[in-house]
Simulated assay, not measured.
Amino acid sequence: MSTKTELAAVPPKETALAVFSAEKGLEPWLQKIRDEVRAFVPDTSTAKGRAAIASIAHKVAKSRTALDDAGKKLVAELKEVPKLIDAERKRMRESLEALQEEVRRPLNEWQAAEDARVAQHQAVIKHIENTDTGGMSAALIGAKIQDLDSCEINQELEEFEADAHRAKAASLIILRQAMQDQEKLEAEQAELIKLRAEKEAQDQKDRETRIAQEAADKARIEAEQKAQRERDAEAKRAADEKVAAEKRENDLRLAAAESERKAEQARREKIESDQRAERERKEAAERQEKAVEEARIAEQKRADEAAAEIVRQQDARAADTAHKSKVMGAAKAAIMSMNVTEELAKALVMKIYRGEVPNITINF
């Protein structure tokens, strides 16, 4: 077929009226167009082949326009036959539009398959680029890093393989930095809990020491005041009665002994208070260590569960890949049994798997 001319010329002017007026008068021209289009073998595997499909479809459209314009001229010149001409024009347009759609269908189907292939690869890269770690612990971030690091990037990504390698490297850098930041934050939080517990214990000890000291001071002052009052009374009564003086002196000795006893008691209470504060500080430290350990165990459990889930997903993907390989291998063997080469059989199975063969699918 020539690529420099239209698919079909218009009827000669002297016979145009007869052609357009007759029922299916344009059929010879339409049939010529169909025959030449049917002789064209579409090839979507190369850019040149796809351009040729678009070119032949355009030429069908140009032939449709040329024939339609010829009919329009007849309608303008011959008002008495517009209905016949319009009917033939309509039939011609519908016929050639259907033919145009038929010619272009392989190119449209190739484009749809190409768009789906590109979208699938881009989805894989988008998954690799996902570095969101909001709310994750350092252990979970580490599991995410391990999962991404074990993600295999190969030639199945075709022209997107290099982009996937770059995305994986960039995401690993971001995730590793996020894990370092989270580990630092968790260490700071643990240290803050420890310092808070130590401060509470020290505050409690200071309060008890202050209370004990205030009690001792109060007892000492009361004893001194009482002694002074008794000394004053003794001085007043000394001149009146020796016996009373001796009694008051004896009372003072007893009071001093009592004061000493109270002071000793205050000292013992302070020692007991110090010992109690030390016990409570140790208990607070033990509670803090227990809380930190429980938090570590809980975090380890979450990390183990996350790692187990990753292993399960990897096993599932491996099982799915193995199953698909087995099914596609059986399909290839069946095609090869019809004297088809292994390379061609493999290519056919892959085209069916990618949806490039209409109305044929592989059931997994």
Results as ranks from 00 to 15, higher is better:
Ile271Pro: 05
Lys90Gln: 14
Gln146His: 14
Thr5Met: 09
Glu246Met: 15
Leu99Cys: 06
Glu289Val: 14
Ala285Leu: 14
Arg317Phe: 01
Leu140Gln: 15
Leu96Arg: 07
Ala51Ser: 08
Val243Arg: 09
Glu299Asp: 12
Glu249Ser: 08
Ala322Tyr: 06
Glu114Ala: 08
Leu67Gly: 00
Ala119Asp: 09
Gly329Tyr: 03
Ala303Cys: 01
Glu152Val: 04
Lys346Arg: 05
Asp217Arg: 14
Ala187Gln: 03
Glu246Tyr: 14
Ala167Glu: 07
Ile56Ser: 02
Glu224Gly: 02
Ala219Asp: 00
Thr5Asn: 10
Arg34Asp: 07
Thr46Ala: 08
Ile221Tyr: 05
Asp240Asn: 09
Glu309His: 02
Leu67Phe: 02
Glu36Tyr: 09
Ala162Arg: 11
Arg220Pro: 00
Arg302Leu: 09
Met338Ile: 08
Glu289Gly: 13
Ala201Ser: 15
Ala178Arg: 01
Glu208Ile: 06
Lys262Tyr: 06
Glu23Thr: 13
Ser63Arg: 10
Lys73Met: 11
Asp320Thr: 04
Glu188Lys: 03
Asp43Thr: 02
Val118Arg: 12
Val327Phe: 05
Arg229Val: 01
Gly355Phe: 04
Ile335Gln: 11
Glu246Gln: 15
Arg176Pro: 00
Ala291Leu: 11
Glu264Pro: 10
Gln177Arg: 14
Arg220Glu: 04
Ala233Trp: 00
Gly142Phe: 05
Ile141Asp: 01
Lys90Ala: 12
Asp86Ser: 01
Glu200His: 04
Ala8Gly: 14
Leu252Ser: 08
Glu109Thr: 03
Arg267Pro: 07
Asp251Lys: 08
Ala255Tyr: 01
Thr321Trp: 06
Pro42Lys: 02
Glu246His: 15
Asn339Asp: 12
Met92Leu: 10
Arg50Gly: 07
Leu344Phe: 04
Ala87Tyr: 10
Glu152Cys: 09
Lys32Tyr: 07
Met338Ala: 00
Val75Pro: 01
Ala138Glu: 14
Leu148Ser: 04
Ser45Asn: 05
Ala263Arg: 07
Ser137Gly: 11
Asp251Arg: 00
Glu269Pro: 00
Thr361Phe: 05
Glu186Ala: 03
Gln155His: 15
Ser337Leu: 12
Ala113Asn: 09
Met336Gln: 01
Leu96Lys: 10
Ala330Met: 12
Thr131Lys: 12
Val60Pro: 13
Asn363Ile: 15
Pro82Val: 04
Met1Ile: 11
Arg276Tyr: 11
Lys351Phe: 10
Ser63Val: 13
Ala76Cys: 08
Lys13Val: 04
Arg261Phe: 05
His165Leu: 15
Gln204Met: 13
Met136Glu: 13
Arg166Cys: 06
Arg50Ala: 14
Leu17Gln: 11
Ala52Tyr: 03
Pro12Ser: 05
Gln228Lys: 05
Glu246Trp: 15
Asn339Leu: 09
Ala263Lys: 01
Glu208Thr: 13
Glu269Cys: 00
Val60Gly: 03
Glu241Gly: 03
Gln100Leu: 10
Glu214Lys: 05
Glu188Val: 09
Gln314Thr: 15
